[in-house]
């Protein structure tokens, strides 16, 4: 089961660019579409997911030789659900406004494919330290992608960034971009852009 440990640079390159959870692996779409209406929500969700990802990767990696292969998915889900409950309670206690606006999508981190995918494809096969680094890198990649999407939607749909008005007064916000419809369209366009850049890069390498 044990695989060769990739270098730190490789782990971070994968998390942020080559294997970016949202733009390349296309994981965790539900929460991405639902909460990317403002940058604050994007950061809040990104940090919560990163927190769960680091801890679940660490514990799954520590327990990787003890969990029987047959019931591993169920075991992973229980470990993840435990940490998600912790995050849920922390947010409700210290940042109730954020907990309110993220709503059900905090408990739903349990079923966010990114976390289970990293548990299965990385943490269950690597030592604890690289697994934690992988959690940091993937979480960072998720957060950066969320911030990009939510910045675009908040700027166009509300004329603000982080709640501060940045667009000139005559700009009337396009509310459609903040509505669910805008979520689908903005994400679709961004993923197309990423695929275009990647195909161009490949062409350059081929020549």
């Amino acid at each position: 089961m044990e695989k060769k440990t990739p270098s730190v640079g490789r782990i971070f390159r994968d998390g942020l660019l080559d294997q970016n959870p949202i733009f390349v692996q296309l994981l965790g779409m539900c929460s991405t579409l639902a909460i990317s209406t403002s940058v604050i929500n994007g950061i809040g969700m990104g940090v919560s997911v990163t927190f769960v990802l680091i801890l679940s990767n660490l514990f799954i990696s520590l327990l990787r030789n003890f969990i029987p292969a047959k019931i591993r998915i169920a075991s992973y889900i229980v470990i993840i659900a435990g940490f998600v409950t912790v995050v849920d309670m922390i947010l409700q206690a210290y940042v109730p406004s954020l907990a309110e606006s993220l709503g059900l999508f905090i408990p739903l981190i349990v079923v966010n494919c990114i976390i289970l995918a990293r548990a299965e494809s990385f943490a269950s096969k690597h030592a604890p330290l690289p697994s934690v680094l992988d959690g940091v890198a993937m979480g960072l990649g998720f957060t950066v992608a969320l911030v990009i999407i939510s910045a675009i939607r908040e700027l166009i749909g509300n004329g603000t960034l982080l709640g501060i008005r940045v667009m000139p007064d005559f700009y009337s916000p396009a509310v459609l971009v903040i509505s669910p419809v805008g979520g689908f369209l903005v994400l679709g366009a961004l993923i197309a852009l990423v695929q275009w850049i990647r195909s161009r890069k490949k062409k350059h390498k081929g020549e």
Binding site: G182, G183, L185, G188, I191
Partner: peptide
Amino acid sequence: PFRGVPIALIAGG
């Protein structure tokens, strides 16, 4: 670039 998921997202939108 739009083939696959992006065009599906836009249709969904």
